[in-house]
Nucleic acid binder design. Structure first.
Lengths: 115, 115
DNA sequence: TGGTATAGTATGAAAAAAGGTACTGTAACG
DNA sequence: CGTTACAGTACCTTTTTTCATACTATACCA
């Protein structure tokens, strides 16, 4: 953690939600429905099993995501957003919105430079 | 850029503002006053010259930050937020707020576990 | 004359993050 | 009997990011 107080908040916040796939995992879980391991995998076609496991473990560690194991064979594990995790909703939502506008702006610029 | 449309927005947004120091640089510049290279450096005591240069270049590249060189000796270069950069204000603000609550929550938990 | 401030660049090393592949055990399906 | 699905783990490699240090040129100040 940084010493500078202003920096602390950003570092703390970003540590929790950054990681190549974390925002997307959280976004999907924020839809409300619990998802199984492989369901998330299918939603993120390019993620490796290893990365998904690692990120989910970190999110669980920070109590943003809850992991429930059903003792069955074949195994069933469900991931869902926690109440605390839901507090991230506005953050991810504004980020998502800005990203949307950012992509559009980029495409507009690209189109302009091409003609 | 990812292919999956949902992911795109996050990737695009995060690419722009993530980097160990970018949110903090932007935060300071969002205060409105243009800052010189070394002024920013003093605000971020732990950053290396190299990292500051790299991050500023990237922010400039994405038109979030404007760089103005005054032809003087010793050199004077001022960085300021662009109009487009200002559109990041709500994103950083919610992030900052959440970080604040996140830090408090962590401290509360730590205090509990210690008694 | 030597030190300080300015805004960087260059180079190489270290650390962190992500990726790739193979492997586990069990059950149901064909 | 071979294959697939499930939810991972183990091990190793590659890529990306960050860090550390030295160096540039010029002017001002004591």
């Amino acid at each position: 953690m940084q010493k500078n107080p202003v920096q602390c908040q950003f570092v703390a916040a970003l540590d929790s939600i950054v990681g190549k796939w974390k925002p997307i995992i959280l976004y999907h879980l924020l839809q409300g429905k619990p998802l199984r391991f492989n369901e998330i995998r299918r939603l993120l076609p390019d993620i490796t099993q290893r990365m998904l496991t690692l990120h989910l473990r970190e999110l669980e560690e920070e109590e943003l995501v809850k992991r429930v194991i059903y003792p069955q064979i074949p195994p069933k594990v469900e991931y869902s957003i926690t109440e605390y995790g839901m507090s991230l909703s506005p953050v991810l939502e504004t980020l998502h919105q800005w990203g949307l506008a950012h992509v559009e702006r980029k495409q507009l610029k690209k189109a302009k430079s091409e003609k």
